[in-house]
């Protein structure tokens, strides 16, 4: 009995975002279908992994997360190189030293670190600030200038600081991360504000401020599915690839942090923690996540192996 394959006729597609410079360019987005449904459309670029680097030695990381980076945790440049060795498609530098509670580092110091990291690796860079909106607005223009020509992805822009970060991206040829808390209308609104300043829509990545598996993953999942459906049916202000900060969320979960003696009924911590990060990324890939910012090299490796398989087209 011949089954007529059900194919949707989408009218539009996701923007293609290009990061880095030749010959080390990374492209994301460009999809003309739902994730991995090659029987009805194209998915020209695979979801990619950015491994995270902090510019301050992380204080609260569990030992199993620190272990793969032994000896480099206090040196962002060495850490970034290590991430590339581990197979990262991108390096995500997080400038937490700028946080007023930590070193309150100056924009110039941040820019110096960013430049040193960018010069040390050949993969494109994602650079995010310390999460304090005013401070990020101060550091990003200087960081953006130091990285001029590197075609990086800078963030995270919010409705309160997008103007300076957008300007920093426009002047220096970078793209921007637009963050909005789990709300499709707010995401759209911020994209409109940024494009109205003159930054091209294909230089924006949406950050829906995802939660980890078990901690609200379903909200981000549905917002990403809705945004993708919007993109495929012609909503230009939702047609941006999505970046998911998987690592910071997954490693906050009790299920990742609890050592074996605290939670024996949950199984071995090393396996459960890596699976928590992998499963969070795998789930977002199904919902249309394009850039997964992860922490543990083993999680990254497993996620990439999974994507290898998902990218083998099934066409009927």
């Amino acid at each position: 009995m011949a089954v007529t394959i059900a194919k949707e006729r989408w009218t539009s597609k996701v923007n293609e975002l290009v990061l880095g410079t030749d010959p080390n360019v990374v492209k994301v987005g460009g999809d003309s279908t739902l994730p991995f449904l090659f029987f009805e459309g194209e998915m020209p670029n695979r979801p990619v992994v950015a491994l995270e680097v902090l510019d301050l030695e992380p204080a609260d990381w569990p030992d199993i997360l620190k272990a793969p980076f032994e000896g480099v945790l206090a040196d962002p440049v060495a850490w970034a190189k290590k991430n590339v060795e581990y197979g990262a498609d991108l390096v995500c530098l997080r400038l937490i030293s700028a946080h007023p509670d930590f070193k309150n580092a100056s924009p110039e110091d941040c820019a110096k670190t960013a430049k040193a990291v960018a010069d040390a690796v050949n993969v494109p860079l994602v650079v995010v600030g310390c999460g304090v909106e005013e401070k990020d607005a101060e550091i990003m223009p200087v960081v953006g200038e130091a990285l001029a020509g590197k075609v990086a992805l800078l963030g995270c822009a919010t409705p309160n600081n997008y103007k300076t970060i957008t300007a920093a991206c426009m002047v220096n040829g970078h793209s921007i991360i637009a963050s909005s808390p789990l709300d499709i209308n707010l995401a759209k609104q911020l994209n409109i504000l940024i494009t109205e300043m003159g930054l091209a829509a294909n230089r924006i990545a949406i950050d829906p401020l995802v939660g980890a598996l078990g901690y609200g993953i379903e909200y981000a999942y549905s917002i990403m599915e809705r945004a993708r459906l919007g993109a495929l049916t012609g909503d230009k202000m939702l047609a941006m690839p999505v970046i998911c900060f998987v690592g910071q969320e997954a490693w906050k979960a009790k299920e990742s942090k609890a050592p074996n003696d605290e939670a024996p009924e949950w199984g071995d911590q090393a396996r459960r923690a890596v699976l928590w990060e992998v499963m969070t990324a795998v789930t977002f890939a199904q919902a249309s996540g394009a850039i997964m910012v992860m922490r543990h090299p083993e999680s990254a490796k497993q996620f990439k192996a999974h994507i290898d398989k998902m990218m083998e087209p099934v066409k009927y």
């Binding site: 598996l213 078990g214 609200g216 379903e218 999942y221 199984g267 071995d268 699976l275 499963m279 789930t283």
Partner: peptide
């Protein structure tokens, strides 16, 4: 049957099947 494998799956199921 390793809980380290099963806990993420049970949690994902709970999340995906939550009534939005």
């Amino acid at each position: 049957a390793d809980p380290a494998d099963v806990l993420p799956l049970i949690t994902l199921r709970l999340n995906i099947y939550t009534d939005p």
